[in-house]
Amino acid sequence: MPPGLPSDFEQQVLLAVWRLGDGAYGASVRTEIEERTGRTVSQGAVYVTLVRLEKKGWLRSRLADPTPVRGGRAKRLFRILPEAVEGLRAARWAMDRLWEGLPEPGSGRAGAGR
């Protein structure tokens, strides 16, 4: 029972985790989103979404070994689950349906959220 479609920001977080593969954790997800979309996001916002997505069963996390650059604290690594990929596809599909027949914007930033 996939719990509906992921929201805009949830999609961004999910996509970032997916792209990052084995290296997805709070800080890297944030950087990925910021670099790709050009928007700044707060760490808290990223984190609260990661936690929510995990609760929804779209992500799974585990603790990695602590590193000195993090003040000796462990990373919480996230991994995307198949249900999330499903959700992302469904969301993309819905967007594409809605775009159908409309003129493509020249910039090509369609679907990046507004």
Binding site: A27, Q43, V69, G71
Partner: peptide, 15 residues
């Protein structure tokens, strides 16, 4: 349980 990983993320970025 959240504090550690989030604080770690923030510290990493800070450095």
């Amino acid at each position: 349980h959240l504090h550690d990983s989030l604080a770690g993320d923030l510290e990493e970025r800070f450095r």
